[in-house]
């Protein structure tokens, strides 16, 4: 089958969830108990706002991830043609990886790979 069929799988997934949720909406009971709509916090009412500025602590990792994710764009096509191109491709990728690895090593030595 051709790639256009992908839309079918998208639709099947969406329909599956949609139909089941609508069905459940009909058959499931509905409560009027306001306590049930409270967000869960071990039985105690929530204090303060939930959506605060949140210190996630992996900001540096995210930046590093971006660099390496872009690197994959090169590496995937390279991997496909590696067998055919041979030595040139190998030398190229060695140089490429050494640069990447040095970057990683730099980040490592600068303690960027530590959760703040």
């Amino acid at each position: 089958m051709s790639n256009e069929w992908l839309i079918l799988f998208f639709l099947v997934g969406a329909l599956f969830v949609g139909v089941v949720v609508v069905f459940a909406g009909f058959v499931a009971p509905k409560s009027t108990n306001l306590q049930k709509f409270e967000p869960y916090e071990c039985g105690i009412p929530t204090e303060g706002v939930t959506w605060l500025q949140f210190n996630v602590g992996y900001y540096l990792f995210a930046i590093l991830f971006l660099i390496f994710a872009i690197e994959t764009v090169l590496v995937f096509p390279w991997a496909v043609v590696m067998k055919e191109v041979g030595l040139t491709a190998f030398i190229e990728i060695v140089i490429f990886f050494v640069i990447l690895g040095l970057g990683l090593l730099y980040a490592w030595k600068k303690h960027a790979l530590v959760w703040e």
Partner: peptide
């Protein structure tokens, strides 16, 4: 699970939630 209540949470972002 199909016959259990779908509880809408207070102040939730219901569009994203669903």
């Amino acid at each position: 699970l199909l016959f259990k209540e779908l509880i809408p949470i207070k102040n939730a972002d219901s569009f994203l939630f669903n």
